[in-house]
């Protein structure tokens, strides 16, 4: 199959553009190819399938927007929107705040700080399934559980962290913050490293308070890093899946069901691939919209 490269056409194009124009694309080709095969093609297929009643062996049936109306009218999906927003927002903001606090605390060159930073970063590189199992143990709903034994010492509890439908979503959120804060910390640390030291010195001479230093020097200086963190967190927050799936599976009583766990159940427990594709496409559109919006706000902010 190596002959598929249309040699004459390619030569003509290469001739017109010259070597210089082609070489960068050749270097990009492996990455592009991987993206095409593993990202863009499945994505296009997903969008295509969302218009069908998918039955690979009986012939897919075109049903237009039926999948979309079914998904959007399903009250469990509607509930999931609320959970996704609460979890996504809480988890993103919590992880950014905690990540920022960690970055401020752990910024510096000392060896002890390096070790600490590595230790703090560990949650971000641990498999989410493992983290989920760990937190299940910590959340164990009797005084044998780590958190509950702590509460027990204070004369409180035991708290049903995962089995109480009013608390389960927040328990999941806490785990999400724990996972993602160190990740944000690393990006923010890079931002902090770029802050002009002379500004701090000048501020110290002017005798500003800690809060003023943060507000008028640190935050404006790390704004680009913050924006990256915010964009990433928005996207991640909306398509949250693994954290919920490994910790509660969407339960109890659907109280932690988010958009993606719903789509997963629809696709793989109920074998409704068309509906699951439609749900995923809706999420894709919303994510795209939000990303564009964050970008727009950032550009407007920069221009100002």
């Amino acid at each position: 199959m190596t002959a598929t490269v249309p040699a004459p056409a390619a030569r003509r194009v290469f001739g017109v553009l010259g070597k210089k124009a082609v070489v960068p694309w050749l270097f990009l080709a492996p990455g592009l190819l991987l993206a095409l095969v593993f990202k863009f093609w499945p994505m296009a297929k997903g969008i295509w399938l969302s218009f069908f009643d998918v039955r690979p062996f009986l012939g897919d049936q075109w049903i237009g927007l039926d999948n979309y109306t079914r998904v959007l009218a399903d009250h469990r999906f509607q509930d999931a929107i609320g959970h996704t927003l609460v979890l996504g927002l809480g988890q993103s903001l919590g992880a950014i705040l905690l990540g920022f606090a960690l970055a401020l605390l752990l910024e510096g060159q000392a060896r002890s700080l390096k070790i600490l930073r590595t230790a703090v970063f560990l949650p971000a590189v641990t498999a989410t399934a493992v983290v989920g199992e760990l937190w299940r143990l910590m959340y164990y709903p009797t005084s044998d559980g780590l958190l509950n034994s702590g509460l027990h010492l204070l004369g409180l509890g035991p708290v049903q962290f995962l089995d109480n439908p009013d608390i389960a979503l927040y328990s999941t959120m806490a785990m999400g913050i724990w996972i993602w804060a160190p990740y944000n910390m690393v990006i923010l640390l890079a931002g902090l490293a770029g802050v002009d030291r002379s500004l701090y010195e000048a501020a110290a001479m002017d005798g500003v308070s800690l809060w003023q230093r943060l507000r008028y020097i640190t935050l404006p200086a790390i704004r680009p890093a913050l924006m990256i963190v915010l964009t990433l967190a928005t996207i991640r927050g909306l398509r949250v899946f693994t954290e919920v799936y490994v910790l509660t599976g969407g339960g109890p009583a659907g109280s932690t069901d988010v958009w993606m766990t719903r789509a997963y159940t629809l696709g793989f427990t109920r074998n409704d691939i068309g509906g699951a594709s439609a749900a995923s496409v809706v999420l894709l559109c919303v994510t795209l919209l939000l990303t564009v919006m964050v970008n727009y706000l950032r550009k407007r902010g920069e221009a100002r």
Partner: peptide, 22 residues
């Protein structure tokens, strides 16, 4: 110039994709 690079890139990508699909 930037615009004229695009077809080349598409061609290369398409050719590679067909190769792997096969």
């Amino acid at each position: 110039r930037r615009r004229s690079r695009r077809p080349a890139a598409l061609l290369a990508a398409a050719a590679l994709a067909f190769g792997t699909a096969a």
